[in-house]
Design a protein around this nucleic acid. Structure first.
Lengths: 251, 251
DNA sequence: AGCTGTGACTGGTCCGACCAGTGGACTAGG
DNA sequence: CCTAGTCCACTGGTCGGACCAGTCACAGCT
């Protein structure tokens, strides 16, 4: 049999898709920047030489991808949005929903990413950044006296600072997204009201240990402590027979 | 000032959004499964009691999110798709394009995820899975004599097997997606034609070392070797001043 | 100058129409 | 009886026009 050229199946390109492509290309070329406005739908109709239905379908896709936002009556036209992780979160949530994704996998993901970020941060951190990290510990201590939401917020800040020191916004975004998914998954099992203060104090203590390890520059120790803490914190929500992967990360 | 109830800003919910929500809810409830078909657009018009334009905008959003696929002329109606990571990849590519994401970050991400997967795999692997892993090594060796594409394919299989042993599809998906993004980013800098065979043999040797470490059950060693290999392989494409984070991962 | 009412324009939705393409039913042939 | 070919009902893609509620800028009033 002749080994001819490798043909690829073709699928028709719809008009609205080419509009989406043109807008996205303009965005990566820099011709369009967040904050700027697109022409009105009726103006786009003339520019692209298509009907308004087609323009609107393209705008709906762009809107669903978090690229633009249309508001009724706005004479300035659709707005180009700054990048946001909401669309990325949507996809991960979708991945989690098809139930190929267990809570154990999500927690393992967090242990891995957070541990790695801490390991990198303990090497790259400047004295100023170390001070900033210690500042967030103080803020966490103060937040305990407010309520759990405030503490959770301060905890989030801590991990944001870590990711920024590690100079990796992918880790930052993924961690934030997965953290949100994990929280929604276990939110119905949480009864923080009874013992929340003790839990918060314990969590603060663990964070302080991590900072100590970062201060001494021992990245492996810092990462190990952080992973162990996360294991202790979340393992109770994971079925016994799924904890193997998590324990493999705490060695 | 009275501390009244916490009102939230409201934004109007469009008709097409509620259609999208209903379809996605039906999907998570299991009323809709991949492979099944949606009613035709005109049928959906009567079921949702909206116009066809509205139905179509909803379908475009679902299609852009990888949930359904419409084909012109198909009497069976739009098809419910199995989950695919293409939409997730699209979002990560978008994140990479806004240039907040450097090549170094992507490679760091791969070093972290792949290393962690290998660490977990060396603990969870069964003798059969170890044999399967050794089998992929043989396949990689055979692929070297074909061409680089075949070798790359075999290499991908290796990492897929690792992720499956580690029982974490999130890692699997993220790794696959990021790997694709990395390849497209450096594809223009690659000139494999001259020395590809030597590179492939070296890569195979490194994979064999990883498998050795997995066989002996030393997860930390296996992970360290894997990260070091990836560093050696990719570091050349990363600017000198961005390699700090990568080196922090190879300690 | 500050306020107010108005109107041009926006996006959201609906309707009806036409076209090219698909696939199943139906028919003619084996 | 089964196969191969034709045909047509129906599909999605696109178009154009229409109406409505909402928004914002501006002209005119106080």
């Amino acid at each position: 049999m002749a080994n001819g050229p490798q043909f690829q199946p073709v699928q028709p390109v719809r008009a609205y898709q080419r509009i989406v492509e043109q807008v996205e290309e303009a965005l990566v070329r820099g011709d369009l920047a967040p904050g700027q406005r697109l022409p009105s739908e009726r103006e786009l109709v003339t520019q692209f030489a298509v009907s308004r239905s087609t323009v609107r379908e393209a705008l709906r896709v762009l809107e669903s991808n978090g690229v633009v936002r249309s508001r009724p009556g706005d004479p300035n036209g659709p707005e180009i949005l700054p990048f946001s992780s909401t669309a990325l979160r949507k996809q991960i949530v979708r991945l989690a929903r098809v139930d190929e994704l267990t809570l154990a996998e999500l927690i393992a993901f967090r242990m891995i990413m957070d541990g790695a970020a801490i390991q990198v941060a303990s090497r790259l951190r400047t004295p100023e950044q170390l001070a900033e990290l210690e500042g967030t510990l103080v803020a966490m201590r103060a937040a305990i006296d407010v309520d759990f939401a405030a503490f959770s917020e301060a905890d989030l800040t801590f991990h944001d600072v870590i990711a920024r020191i590690a100079r990796n916004s992918l880790i930052e975004t993924c961690n934030e997204v997965v953290r949100g998914v994990v929280l929604t998954l276990i939110s119905d099992k949480i009864a923080h009201a009874s013992n929340s203060r003790a839990l918060m104090l314990e969590s603060l203590q663990h964070h302080a240990e991590v900072v100590d390890a970062i201060r001494s520059g021992d990245g492996h120790a810092a990462a190990r402590i952080a992973r162990q803490n996360m294991y202790d914190y979340y393992a109770g929500y994971v079925p016994e027979d799924e904890r193997g992967a998590l324990r493999a990360l705490t060695d």
